[in-house]
């Protein structure tokens, strides 16, 4: 479904199965209200997240991407989030060169018990994305399709 115009932006979340997905569940069980923009993709481990998934989501039209894993040292697979931290940090800092604000992508750690922290992360990230507004979108096969619209917007 398309995003609800004027109400929502498209935010994709990649959450590890063991900590953060559970944290999001805990937030739900606690009925901690959250903005509705985020859609969560479950992965086994933050180490499974190829930073290119983040870029793929942005290029396909996401306005924001949020990654969350187990806190460092708590990884179910011992080391996954340590690798993730390095790789995601590099991608986070790389994004500006393409023309995305680095704030469109954040990564963090939320444990399965931290429902409240999850609520806070989702709320503040959604606010951050709404403050940035929609991300630049590629609107057609030719650059001109996008560029003319961008010009019009400028």
């Amino acid at each position: 479904m398309p995003v609800l115009t004027g109400k929502e932006l498209r935010i994709v979340g990649f959450l590890c199965n063991w900590c953060s997905y559970g944290g999001a569940d805990t937030a739900g069980i606690g009925r901690f209200n959250q903005p509705t923009d985020l859609r969560i993709i479950k992965v086994p481990c933050s180490g499974r997240i190829d930073p290119l998934f983040v870029v793929k989501a942005l290029m396909n039209g996401a306005d924001g991407v949020l990654v969350s894993g187990c806190h460092p040292r708590d990884c179910h697979y011992a080391e996954g989030n340590f690798y993730a931290r390095r790789r995601l940090e590099i991608m986070h800092n790389f994004l500006p060169i393409i023309g995305y604000e680095p704030e469109r992508f954040e990564y963090t750690w939320v444990s399965a018990s931290e429902g409240q922290r999850w609520q806070q992360v989702v709320t503040s990230f959604t606010e951050q994305i709404h403050k940035l507004g929609p991300a630049p979108k590629i609107l057609g096969p030719e650059a001109s399709d996008t560029l003319s619209l961008m010009q019009a917007a400028l």
Binding site: P96, I97, I98, G99, Y100, E101, P136, I138, E142, A143, S144, T146, L147, M150, A153, L154
Partner: peptide
């Protein structure tokens, strides 16, 4: 050179690559 490019605005950077990769 990279640093100079990064000082451009977001639409300028995004637009630059779209034009180049066209």
């Amino acid at each position: 050179a990279v640093e100079t490019f990064e000082n451009l605005s977001v639409p300028e950077r995004f637009g630059y690559w779209l034009k180049e990769f066209d």
